[in-house]
């Protein structure tokens, strides 16, 4: 576990994580400041940003003081100069998940945030163009949410037309 950068906002909970140097759990208010601090600390690349819908999850391991919400945004930062990886997990809310956009810090998160918005309905404040990216524009709902059913094609066993 590596220490937080000196410019990080106070009171951010940290924990060990698999295949990663440290996982931080900022509140959505401290999120942007924390990522900025990591960026100044030499994390040049935002490798990945994705959302998770924890509806129906039996309970995840969070450090003390972090209030679990249904939606979580997970950011994986990568430092090319020091060969480190850091994960930032921010609790985004239950009803209307909303976090600040990282677009000003890492322009490369533009498409990833759009994907998280499209598939999970997480809103990113300050994103220049928060539109659907994978689904059609007139699609209703956010498919990766846990309360969004998986589509099925019914298999017909009886009364199926025979060969010819």
């Amino acid at each position: 576990m590596i220490p937080l950068p000196p410019t990080a906002p106070p009171g951010v909970a940290c924990a060990d994580a698999l295949a990663c140097d440290v996982a931080c759990f900022p509140t959505s208010g401290a999120y942007l400041d924390l990522v900025r601090a990591w960026r100044e600390d030499g994390f040049e690349i935002c490798a990945d940003l994705c959302g998770v819908d924890y509806l129906g999850h039996p309970g995840r391991d969070l450090p003390e003081g972090v209030v679990a919400t249904r939606f979580e945004v997970v950011v994986n930062l990568l430092s090319v100069s020091t060969r480190r990886r850091v994960r930032v997990r921010v609790q985004a809310g239950d009803r209307e998940p909303r976090v600040p956009s990282l677009f000003g810090l890492y322009p490369g998160t533009e498409a990833m945030e759009r994907e998280a918005f499209d598939l999970l309905g997480i809103l990113f404040d300050g994103h220049p163009d928060l539109t659907r990216i994978l689904m059609p524009e007139d699609w209703e709902g956010h498919p990766l949410r846990k309360d969004y059913a998986v589509g099925r094609v019914p298999v017909q066993f009886k009364e199926a037309p025979g060969p010819r």
Binding site: A17, L18, A19, C20, A47, D48, C50, V52, D53, G56, H57, P58, G59, R60, D61, V74, N76, L78, R85, R87, L144
Partner: peptide, 30 residues
């Protein structure tokens, strides 16, 4: 086991990462 992980490998096109969340069951939670 319950947990989450992000691993990355070098695919011919760049960093191919996989973020997995497990709820302890036989299917990935995410």
């Amino acid at each position: 086991p319950v947990g989450e992980v992000y691993t990355a490998i070098e695919s011919p096109r760049g960093e191919l990462g996989c973020y997995l969340v497990s709820d302890g069951g036989p299917h990935p939670f995410r």
